[in-house]
Design a binder for these strands. Structure first.
Lengths: 216, 216
DNA sequence: TTATTTATGATAGTAATACTATTATTTAAA
DNA sequence: TTTAAATAATAGTATTACTATCATAAATAA
């Protein structure tokens, strides 16, 4: 994790881990706009000042947990496609990974991956859609996202070395896996998926989009 | 315009038109997070209470100006594709329309379309990425966006009546025309476009994506 | 063991934001 | 010309987003 995101490393103490855990819970439940350090402190049983010793402001905390997700997806991608040779199968794995509402991984006690995935759907783009995106970018806040798009882009190029837009297609897959899910659940007429809350339709759409795009 | 978005119709008075004009200016210049009714009032030369007589809160004002854009795009789409028969040419027009940083249309004195386009790029998704999206949707706030995606979806179906995801592809075009532009300018390594600020690359990418997707 | 650093808790306080309310004054419609 | 409506001016409240201070508890070093 990028140390510029925090003041004190939340992984290194119980209070820190509680801040992460309860932030994910609260942002998941009420959205980022309604999320305040005061509510967070109350939920943990500490004080506002206690939270401020870990994070400068709520935006950096949001970027922290979203970075955590980017890194976790990168790990899952490496892990799940490790012994797969066919890049098409790899790409399908990634589409499914990004589109599917994952199970909570119990090995990461203070992070609920299922809730994090929901946060990415509703709040993910707020990490960068700010007027200080340039400053944040200079501090490398988005490096894990860039690494992820590079990795996906490499697999796209393995499928078709002549394809001209591997990075744009990678970011399109990432963003659309989340946005089409949001639309499906809240503005279904912007999609062709009934409010079945079934992600398999989104996967089919993205596979159709991607594999038609990259075929020679 | 949906009357639930405002308290008093801003089109019906000079003050109202000033609220729209200066809102677009301020949100364009400093972003939506930094935008407050106090700053807006100061910029106009009225008082905070004056603004609150027109809009309940800054979110509804944002949705108002974004709705204005959706409606304007719909109008431009109808106008520009009116006497075109070939649906492929129509679709290209739409992609170009959504991707291009338009000129300010001087016939709409209080709305600067060029600035509005920039606002859509940076703030567009904040219209619906809220925890009250369901409530807003019940009040039909997103009807112009749905109408637009339907219209684009119809043209997609004209190109290929068997294509299975016309609405999802329409919302993908709309969102990606904006998001790839944002990435190009602020996080270029998420794209394959150099920071040339040249939208023609985005148009080529989207045309490639769309026409490969819908070809039979 | 004691001394000392370090993290946390408790409390207070400030500036800005997001509003609501009241009254006076100007403008426009009946 | 009366009356209603819109606006300006001012004040005030609750919440948010912080900063600062001091006491205490826990961990660590001498």
């Amino acid at each position: 994790m990028n140390p510029s995101l925090y003041i004190r490393d939340p992984e290194q103490s119980e209070l820190g881990k509680n801040i992460i855990k309860h932030s994910i819970q609260l942002i998941h439940d009420n959205g980022f706009e309604a999320f305040t350090f005061k509510k967070l402190a109350e939920s943990i049983g500490t004080t506002e000042a206690g939270v401020y010793r870990y994070f400068e402001n709520k935006h950096k905390l949001l970027v922290y947990i979203i970075s955590w997700y980017w890194g976790w997806i990168q790990f899952q991608l490496n892990y799940q496609t490790n012994n797969i040779k066919d890049p098409i199968v790899k790409l399908k794995k990634i589409i499914t990974l990004l589109s599917t509402n994952v199970e909570d991984d119990i090995t990461t006690g203070h992070v609920d991956e299922a809730q994090l995935h929901q946060i990415l759907i509703s709040e993910g783009s707020k990490a960068y859609l700010t007027n200080h995106v340039g400053k944040d970018n200079k501090q490398q806040f988005f490096q894990p996202y860039k690494d992820l798009c590079n990795a996906i882009g490499d697999i796209i190029l393995e499928c078709n070395p002549k394809y001209k837009y591997p990075h744009s297609l990678a970011s399109t897959i990432f963003e659309m896996a989340h946005l089409q899910n949001f639309f499906m659940n809240h503005l279904p007429s912007l999609t062709d998926f009934s409010k079945s809350k079934n992600e398999s339709d989104i996967i089919k759409y993205l596979e159709d989009l991607v594999f038609k795009s990259i075929r020679e």
